[in-house]
Amino acid sequence: MRRYFNPSKVALNLSVFLLALFILGPILWLGVHAFVTDWKYPHLYPSGLTLNWWSKVFLDSALKTAIRNSLIISPIVVVLSMVICLPAAYAAGRMNYWGRKTFMITLFSANSFPKIGLFAAIATLYYTLNLMGTFLGVVIIQLLGTIIYMTWIPAAAFASVPRYLEEAARDAGASKFTVFRTITLRMAMPGILVAIVMSFLASFDEAQGSYLVGAPTIYTMPTEMYSLVQNYPIQVAAVFSILLAIPSVLLLGLARKHIMGGQLAEGFQIK
């Protein structure tokens, strides 16, 4: 006999639905508001559909500049972060030197107290170095937030590459550098990809420091949001939010394909 009504199943489905609504609700709200003229209580339906808000964004040169700045600054920050942090991550993951643990813990210091205090202190330093309101100044500020991702995650990835896999490559005739390139780096790649995504998001979404250092000469997408919320109707902010989310979603999708579809998902059975 099949039961058509199962109270526990209904309760489960309902709670899943509510949870989904809680998580996706704000995004749905954004998605709707980016395309409607107006939708306010007590109206049950939006008063009309429009692409007006999108054209506002694309016609406003300040907004366009912010988008361009963000798309230039964030990749530069990620690449710089890789150049600076990956060698350190390799050293921390594969070598055992004095003070290694202390070094790794110290990297948390930038994240361990309210950032705004740190930024204020940095701002005074920036004034003496003439970095205030400069491109480089914003890049450096955003770098700070990526360091923790670009060191800890790849360090763990490097550490988890079994030594015997490198030895096997050496035995097969590969030089130390070739072993690193073809085995170690390749196997640590999922971890590095995760670090790249996290760093990009950290840089792309960074607002506090970038605003403090960059405004009023350099605006990125998140800092532009401040003036947007004040100067435009809420629907333009919704459009901008969606634009802000696009690179993150694309990057996560790409990473998902390479991380979940790669050897991590292969279920490697040898210990």
Binding site: P162, Y164, L165, E167, A168, A172, I183, M187, Q263
Partner: peptide, 12 residues
């Protein structure tokens, strides 16, 4: 040439 105890095949 060596055959390792755990075979040491490259999973990728």
């Amino acid at each position: 040439a060596m055959v390792f105890q755990n075979y040491a095949l490259w999973p990728h």
